[in-house]
Design a binder for these strands. Structure first.
Lengths: 183, 183
DNA sequence: TCCATGTGAGACATGGGTGTCGCATATGAG
DNA sequence: CTCATATGCGACACCCATGTCTCACATGGA
């Protein structure tokens, strides 16, 4: 009888990832509940988006845990991060877009922790001599987000094959476009 | 007396880049004209966005011309592209976001010509042996857009210094994160 | 069985943006 | 100067999403 809040959030996330402009009514229909019930669980659209943001943060945190960012070779860790976050890419893209759309220039507190986890990985790579030091960890973190999101959209638009997505993203971020001597 | 259409579009572009959710009234105020006059020049918000898209395409075309994409070393040409498009980055980010928001999965015809110009540059680099061939030109093109936009947002948010923006973007795209032997 | 809780359906008011119109006014060309 | 054109201002209706409410119904536990 009662609605599973987590499942409701997942459904909303899926729908909004595909159609970012979906209304509360659309979301309710997708979850097979009435709009009234949706409002009973989330005070309003604002509250729903906030909850989705928290969901995204939890998922991203879990993905970073699974990627074991502080273990082994830094480059391999970056590859694992990309592989683990790839299923979240579309959803994260929605959150970033939503954020950029309604409060450009501001940054939510919840993301700083995630940023720091990723930034720490790049710093580790720099300390160990595997990564170049003339690119700031903050910029590398931004670039990682951008490439993961771009990859998801490119797959969605059919410009990149889904099976190549992770490799393309990782290889570009790690090695760049220029042909290198090593590897 | 008469309104300069180009100047009006530029003003709208500036405002929407800063505040993507601006209403027609906001745009009219920013251009110091009445909302009625704005509607006399553009049938509606839809038409205005379309016109802004055309403006973006023209500016991007001009930037690619200025970058002389088919001259000299391919890597240098990529650097020039980034340098020339950097002033447009925020505006292009708005267009991409708007597009992704209202018609995800679709691609506008006008962009394919631009895509092909950039893609051709990457292909040239691959043919000349300067660029690696295991990353498709289509993906590299997407990545270029993503990094330029991300760079603009990072600057806007204060996470990257404006003076480092072009270098950071170009260096990451060309060389990647991994420390390389050359250079 | 009885009752509390949660849900569905629909109605309702509200707010904000949009699109259109009429009318007064200012500008520039002839 | 005269007139056509373009603009400003305000009003109006319209649409859509949102938020709230009521009432009836279903479910599950005591």
């Amino acid at each position: 009888m009662s609605v599973d809040r987590e499942e409701l959030l997942s459904t909303a996330a899926d729908l909004l990832t595909r159609r970012p402009t979906s209304s509360m009514d659309d979301i309710a229909k997708a979850a097979r509940i009435s709009r009234a019930t949706l409002h009973r669980h989330f005070a309003g659209r604002e509250a729903l988006i906030r909850a989705l943001e928290q969901l995204g943060l939890r998922r991203l945190d879990a993905a970073l845990d699974a990627a074991r960012t502080d273990e082994g070779d830094a480059a391999d860790a970056v590859r694992r991060v990309i592989a683990e976050t790839e299923p979240l890419a579309g959803f994260l893209g929605f959150l970033v877009t939503e954020n950029q759309l309604f409060e450009p220039g501001e940054q939510h507190a919840g993301w700083t922790r995630i940023d720091e986890r990723i930034s720490a990985l790049f710093q580790r790579g720099q300390r160990q001599g595997a990564f170049r030091i003339d690119l700031s960890p903050a910029w590398l973190t931004e670039a990682l987000y951008a490439l993961i999101t771009a990859s998801a959209w490119a797959v969605q638009d059919g410009r990149v094959a889904a099976r190549d997505s992770v490799r393309m993203t990782a290889e570009l971020l790690l090695g760049g476009v220029r042909r290198s001597v090593e590897e």
